[in-house]
Amino acid sequence: MVEILVPGIVFGSITAVIISIAHFRTRKTERLALIAAGKDAGLFNEGEKKEKTSAALKFGIVAVALGIGLLVGDYLAKSTDINEAVAYFSMMLLFGGSGLLSFYFIQKQINKKMDK
């Protein structure tokens, strides 16, 4: 397991760093081009507050859903013949996914209200 996990983590970390550098370099270039053209670069900050609120809502819902998933997984592991690892992971994935789906529908309703 370690032979697979360690190279995967190393490769993933290197990839994440390269993508982050490219993202910030591109963003800086776009902002400098806007400023050089005499346009306002404040357009990048318009959705910033909404995104922070959305991220907090998303992480909150997913954290609660994963907690419930752990509790249900523990209950399944102790009360049935299901393997403990299967019970935990399946319930975490099931409840985590349902948390993301519920966030999607809540965010859709919030966006509808803001557009009106």
Rank of each mutant, 00 (worst) to 15 (best):
A65V: 04
H23F: 12
I18R: 12
G69Q: 03
A22N: 09
Y88P: 00
S13E: 09
T53M: 10
A36Y: 03
A55M: 13
K49N: 09
I21S: 07
G99N: 02
A37P: 02
G8M: 10
Y88V: 03
L76F: 07
K108V: 01
K58E: 05
K39E: 10
L43N: 06
V62W: 01
M92E: 04
F11M: 15
F44D: 10
I19G: 02
V72D: 01
Q107R: 10
G96Y: 03
K52A: 13
K58H: 11
I61Y: 02
F89P: 00
I9Y: 11
K58C: 07
A63S: 12
G8Q: 09
I18K: 12
Y75G: 00
G8D: 08
L43F: 06
E51L: 14
F44Y: 13
G69E: 03
A63G: 03
E48S: 08
Q109N: 08
I9A: 15
G67Q: 10
N45M: 10
A55K: 11
D81P: 00
T26Y: 11
G97M: 06
N45R: 13
F24G: 03
G12L: 07
G47E: 07
V10T: 13
V86Y: 12
I82L: 15
S54L: 01
F59T: 05
P7I: 14
Y104H: 12
I35W: 02
I110R: 13
A36Q: 08
I61G: 01
G12K: 04
G47Q: 07
G99K: 02
F103C: 02
M91G: 02
E3M: 10
V6C: 06
A87C: 08
L93Q: 05
I35L: 09
L32H: 11
L101E: 02
V64P: 00
K112Y: 06
D115K: 15
G97L: 08
M91P: 04
K49F: 03
A16E: 02
E48Q: 12
M1Q: 10
K58F: 09
T29L: 05
S79T: 15
V64A: 14
V2H: 14
R27Y: 06
G96F: 03
V2T: 15
L34W: 13
A41W: 05
E46K: 15
Q107C: 00
K112Q: 13
V64F: 13
L101C: 08
I106A: 08
A16N: 10
A56S: 14
G97C: 03
Q109S: 09
E84H: 13
L43R: 11
F89H: 11
A41N: 11
K28M: 06
L93C: 07
S90Q: 05
I110S: 03
R25C: 00
G38Y: 08
K39C: 00
G67S: 12
P7C: 14
L34M: 15
I9S: 10
S79Y: 11
I110F: 08
L34R: 12
G8P: 02
L100A: 08
F11S: 15
F59E: 05
I61K: 04
S98E: 05
T80Q: 09
S20L: 11
A33G: 01
T15G: 06
A41D: 15
A33R: 08
T29R: 13
A65C: 08
S79V: 12
D74N: 15
K113Y: 10
L66Y: 03
F59V: 04
E3K: 14
T15A: 15
S102M: 14
G96D: 02
A77M: 09
A65L: 05
K49L: 06
K58G: 06
S79Q: 14
F103S: 01
